[in-house]
Design a protein around this nucleic acid. Structure first.
Lengths: 147, 147
DNA sequence: AAAATATGTCAACATATCTGACCAAAAAAT
DNA sequence: ATTTTTTGGTCAGATATGTTGACATATTTT
C-alpha cells in the first residue's frame, strides 16, 4: 500500500481552487476578440472542437460539450450566420450534417487561439516534456475518473 | 536555449480542452447536493474561500472571485438567509464585516467537498508527491502568467 | 471637515444555460 | 411496407450568473 499521507484534504482543496482559477483565466484571455464578433464562451468551446475534429457531427458535439441540443443549436445558428462554420450533409447518412469551418472560421479561431496560447505556453515552457505529459495525464484522470 | 519542439500548438490545444473538461466535471459532482439547498456554483466558490480562509472580508472575496460586488452580494444574501454563513464586525475596523460559517455552514460545505474529493483524489493517488507539486505548479503558472 | 474605504442595495439588462413540447427527414428494424 | 429510432431543428419560458450605473450608510483616514 502506497503512502498517501501527503494527499490531505487541504491539497485537494488547493487543486480545486487552482482548477477554478486556471479555467477562469484561460477562458478570459480571448474575451475581447470574441466580443468584437459578438461571440461567447459557448461559441469558443464549439469552435475548439470543430478545429480539433473537422467534420464532427452535431451529436458528437452534444456528447462532448455535455449541453442540451437547444443550447447547442443557438450556438451553431450564430456561427453559421457569421460564416464561421458550415454544415455539409454526410453522403453515407444524409440525416447527419457535418460541421466544418467556413471562409472566416479558421482565421477567427486562430485569432482566439493566439490570445490563449501564451498563457499556457509560458506555464509549460519551463517544464520538461515528461511533466507536460503528466500534467495532461492528471487532468485526463480528473475528467474520466468516476466520482 | 531549451528545446521546445515538443510544445506544439496541438499540445496546447489539448491542455485547454482538458482544462475546460476537468473544470466542468469537477464542478458538476456536487450539483445534486447544491440543488437540494437551492445553491449554485457561485455559492460553492464563495463557500470554498470562506472555508479556506475563515474571517475573510467582502473585499478580499471580491478580489479573489473577480466578480462585481452586486453579484457577490446576491450570493452572500442567500448564504446568510440559509444560515450557512454569518458576518461579524471587525473590532479593529468596524466597517469590515468578516465572513464565517454559521451553524449549518461547515456541515454543508463538507458535504459538497466530499462529493468532489474522490474525483481529485483518484486522479492524484497514483502520482508521487512530486508530481502533485508539479501539477499545482503548472496550474499556478497558468493563473499568474501574463497573457 | 473632507475624502476615501467597505459594505449594501435598486433596477435594468446580457449571457448561457436549462426543461418541455413539438416537428421533419432519413435510416433501421420489424 | 409500416413502424420505430435516430439526427437535427425550433419555439417558449425559466433559472443562474454575471454586467453597468446610480445611490446610501457607516467608518476610517487625511
Amino acid at each position: 500500500m502506497k503512502d498517501l499521507l501527503y494527499l490531505k484534504d487541504e491539497q485537494i482543496k488547493d487543486c480545486i481552487q487552482l482548477l477554478i482559477n486556471a479555467y477562469r483565466e484561460t477562458l478570459s484571455d480571448p474575451k475581447d476578440v470574441l466580443k468584437k464578433k459578438s461571440l461567447g464562451f459557448a461559441h469558443l468551446r464549439t469552435m475548439y472542437l470543430i478545429d480539433m475534429e473537422s467534420g464532427i457531427s452535431v451529436n458528437e458535439l452534444l456528447y462532448k460539450l455535455k449541453i442540451t441540443k437547444q443550447s447547442l443549436n443557438r450556438v451553431l445558428k450564430d456561427l453559421k450566420r457569421l460564416k464561421i462554420i458550415k454544415q455539409i450533409k454526410d453522403n453515407k447518412d444524409t440525416r447527419r450534417r457535418l460541421l466544418y469551418f467556413d471562409k472566416d472560421g479558421q482565421k477567427i479561431h486562430n485569432e482566439v487561439f493566439e490570445a490563449q496560447k501564451k498563457r499556457i505556453f509560458n506555464a509549460l515552457k519551463d517544464s520538461d516534456p515528461n511533466s507536460v505529459i503528466k500534467f495532461k495525464d492528471v487532468l485526463s484522470k480528473i475528467i474520466n475518473g468516476k466520482k
